Simulated scan of single mutants.
Amino acid sequence: MQEADKVFAGSVPENYDRYMVPLIFEPYAADLAQRAASLSPNAVLEIAAGTGVVTRALAPNLSAGASYVVTDLNQSMLDYAASRQPPDSRIKWRQADALALPFEDAVFDVVCCQFGAMFFPDRPAGYREARRVLKPGGHFLFNVWDRIEENVFANDVTNALARIFPNDPPRFLARTPHGYHDTALIRGELEGAGFSRLMIETKAEQSRASSPRLPAVAYCQGTPLRNEIEAREAGKLDAATDYAEAAIAERHGHGEVAAKIQAHVIVAVT
């Protein structure tokens, strides 16, 4: 993963929440929140919370006495998440690195992470940290995207941009969000971090939008793909977005569009 792949700054958080969250994240956030709430945890840690889609889904389903610590490496994402969350004294917001969590050992019942593990520079270290802060019998719940070919709009945008920039195609989506899809590797890294009981479920959903414009803007302007486009040619962002929109429209139509998304959901127990 390149260092720029971790930069969610400027207008990215707002565009990410406005476009990406309803496009691809909401169904998996609801799933992860349901799994976490079903464990009736008293202490929850969320890693790489982004703009808070899991937080908004999970908090209403926790007990009145539960504590919920929400973290992200990017302060701008965390600030945006906090601004979207209704006042809740159970929630503590804290900037934190998943590879060096600022918490004591064995203090959480559940650690959850929505589509964040792919961004860990050292995933085994992140998994060891999750295990360290979990109580005995605690649960680590997270999800990661399957390969890009199983996530149609992301693949459409990546292929479209490769035609605009044939000499240096922007590969952020394939490289990082969709670059950690090997379930044998995931299982091996978790076992190496000390998790013994594992479940990995591959879950398909539908990505829906009112027009091809929305997924084009979501991916080109609501993720670090924006940084890659702008680095290749100044002033090219709008044209690249337009081209991605046209590619999606050509394949899926000019009105409402829908396409497959697919992810792996992982439950690991200490």
Rank of each mutant, 00 (worst) to 15 (best):
Q85L: 13
A37H: 07
P60W: 06
M118P: 03
L78A: 06
D79E: 14
G126F: 12
A48E: 03
D105I: 03
F108H: 08
R56M: 11
A59T: 09
L73V: 09
S40P: 00
G116H: 03
S89F: 00
I47Q: 10
P102L: 11
A36M: 04
V54S: 07
E46L: 10
P27A: 11
A36Y: 07
A49D: 08
G50L: 09
G65S: 13
Q114A: 10
L78T: 09
D105Q: 12
Q114N: 03
A117K: 00
L45H: 03
E129G: 02
A29P: 02
N74M: 15
D88A: 08
F103L: 06
Q75K: 14
A130K: 03
A29K: 03
P124K: 11
C113Y: 02
A29L: 07
E129M: 01
A59R: 08
D122C: 08
E104R: 10
P121S: 05
E26R: 14
V54I: 14
D109I: 08
A43C: 00
C113A: 10
L73R: 11
D72V: 09
Y80Q: 02
R90W: 09
A98F: 08
C112G: 00
A117E: 09
V70W: 05
A117S: 12
A64E: 15
R90D: 05
L62S: 04
W93K: 07
A125S: 13
